[in-house]
Simulated scan of single mutants.
Amino acid sequence: MLKVYAYYVETLVFRFSVGSDDIPETPAWLETEDFPPLSPRAAIETSRLVVLDMLKDYPYAEPEFHACALKKTHDSDRGWWYYEVEWRVYPPEYGDRSSLTVPVLLNGRVPAYDVFDYEDRALAWQG
């Protein structure tokens, strides 16, 4: 199982989990194809909407796009890739920015995520 973690101002930990159930629904990006099945711009827009939803209950400044990377999984010989889209978020009460990374599968879907308070962050790495 692939797990991607994102942190918000050392207050919250978000854990995205991608399991074997997600793989059949995700198109492969084969070595013979020049472009992935989902464009980077579509992945960026999808992740932006998810970041806004993730932070809807917390004060923040408008997220700023930072980076979009294609990543291979350990199953990459089958052509399974995903995007990791990184956002910079500035909480109003803190001077430091926070970075949130959102995985986007090549079918345009963002995996479900769990939210952990920073004090309970050890739970994010269990199970």
Results as ranks from 00 to 15, higher is better:
Gly79Asp: 14
Thr101Ala: 08
Asn107Ala: 12
Val85Asn: 08
Ala69Ser: 12
Trp87Leu: 03
His74Cys: 11
Tyr90Ala: 07
Pro91Phe: 04
Asp77Pro: 08
Arg78Tyr: 15
Glu64Lys: 08
Val89Phe: 05
Glu64Tyr: 04
Arg78Asn: 15
Pro63Lys: 02
Asp77His: 15
Leu105Cys: 02
Thr101Ile: 12
Leu105His: 01
Ala61Ser: 12
Arg88Ala: 09
Asp75Thr: 12
Pro91Trp: 02
Arg78His: 15
Gly108Ile: 13
Tyr94His: 05
Tyr82Ala: 00
Tyr90Trp: 11
Glu93Lys: 05
Gly108Glu: 08
Val85Gln: 07
Lys72Asn: 13
Val85Gly: 05
Pro91Arg: 00
Ala69Phe: 13
Asp77Gly: 14
Arg88Asn: 12
Thr73Gln: 10
Leu100Gln: 07
Glu62Leu: 07
Tyr58Ser: 05
Glu86Tyr: 04
Val89Lys: 00
Pro103Asn: 02
Ser98Gly: 07
Ser98His: 03
Gly79Trp: 11
Asp75Asn: 14
Ala67Phe: 13
Ser76Asp: 15
Arg109Glu: 10
Val85Trp: 08
Gly108Arg: 03
Leu70Arg: 03
Trp81Val: 02
Gly79Ser: 12
Glu62Asp: 13
Pro91Gln: 01
Val110Lys: 08
Ala69Cys: 09
Ser98Tyr: 03
Val85Ile: 13
Val85Tyr: 09
Val104Trp: 03
Glu93Asp: 08
Pro63Ala: 04
Tyr94Gly: 00
Glu62Lys: 07
Ser98Gln: 02
Asp77Leu: 14
Asn107Met: 10
Leu100Lys: 01
Phe65Trp: 11
Val104Ile: 06
Asp77Ser: 15
Val89Arg: 00
Glu84Asn: 06
Ala67Arg: 14
Ser76His: 15
Ala69Met: 13
Glu86Gln: 10
Tyr82Gly: 00
Tyr58Arg: 09
Pro103Lys: 01
Gly108Leu: 11
Val110Ile: 10
Arg88His: 11
Lys71Thr: 04
Thr101His: 05
Phe65Val: 08
Glu62Cys: 02
Ser76Gln: 14
Arg88Gly: 01
Pro91Cys: 02
Lys72Thr: 13
Glu64Phe: 05
Trp80Asn: 06
Tyr82Thr: 00
Trp80Glu: 07
Asp96Lys: 07
Glu93Cys: 00
Gly108Val: 12
Arg97Met: 10
Ser76Asn: 14
Tyr90Asn: 07
His66Ala: 13
Tyr90Lys: 04
Tyr90Arg: 03
His66Val: 07
Val104Leu: 04
His66Thr: 05
Pro92Thr: 04
Tyr94Pro: 00
Trp81Gln: 02
Tyr83Ser: 00
Phe65Asp: 08
Tyr83Lys: 03
Ala61Asn: 11
Cys68Trp: 10
Tyr83Gln: 01
His74Arg: 15
Pro92Glu: 09
Pro59Phe: 10
His66Asn: 14
Trp87Arg: 01
Tyr82Ser: 00
Trp80Gln: 07
Gly108Phe: 12
Leu105Tyr: 03
Ser76Val: 15
Gly95Cys: 04
Asn107Phe: 13
Val85Cys: 06
Val104Phe: 04
Leu106Pro: 04
Leu70Asp: 03
Ala69Tyr: 14
Lys72Cys: 10
Lys72Arg: 13
Arg88Glu: 13
Lys71Glu: 12
Pro103Ile: 01
Lys71Ser: 07
Tyr60Leu: 02
